[in-house]
Amino acid sequence: MSYKGEKNNINSYQLSDKINPLTIVGLILLFSVVLTVGGEYQYWIALAFASGLLLLFSLRKTLSTILTLAIIWGILYLLKPYLGSVFVGSIYTLLLIIIKFSPIFILGRALSSYSSSHLIAAFRKIGIDGGIGIGITVFFRFIPEISIRMKEINDGMKIRGFKASIFKPIKTFELYFVPLMYKCIDISDTLTCSIISKGIEYDGKKTSFHEVKITFIDIAMMIGGMILLGASLWKIF
């Protein structure tokens, strides 16, 4: 499959065909321990690894992530001289914690590059199906929908002459979220009818359009992650 690129509004997840989503899930688990107990070198290796992996999926996402991290680092350097102030110090610490866990967030971003169907196929292989599987599919299906709906509601409010106000929080909440929640009810009913009619309740083995297998690349990545974990734990013991 050739790489078509996001500018054609086509999801460019072709490389995900080669990397098993469960590998990324595994790396998230490993890195969460590495980042908690590991040292400086382990952190930078984890960050470089995660960024490199994201680059395989999307240049745009990698660049935006690096830019975000660079901005946060810049803010940290600017705030450092003022650590005496409690307020500044607390913002500083929070940003540092975001930086600390950024390799995991980057891996999460890489995971979101897969289509929901591909993720379900992977989770089904390890026995995660049913409500959780539907939940994950709906998550990816519905996340873009939320911003579209909120924009439509915003347009509707402008036309009606209703204004959001921080001094009227309950009214503002009612204006935005009541139409959104009714839309949720409608969409969930239609979605359910649709998947019922597509045989989701069929009591037979489910197959997958996407091939989910362990390749040499997956094994190599997991070994790399475990070596990093080993190096982090070595220092403790």
């Binding site: 289509s115 929901s116 169907s117 990816f140 979605l191 009818c193 998947i195 597509k198 069929y202 359009f209």
Partner: peptide, 20 residues
């Protein structure tokens, strides 16, 4: 509103996946 998947070919394939 009736699409369950987020990509076209996945949506088309859904019924086949469910029915094995």
């Amino acid at each position: 509103d009736q699409f369950f998947c987020d990509v076209v070919e996945d949506e088309i394939a859904l019924v086949g996946e469910n029915l094995g």
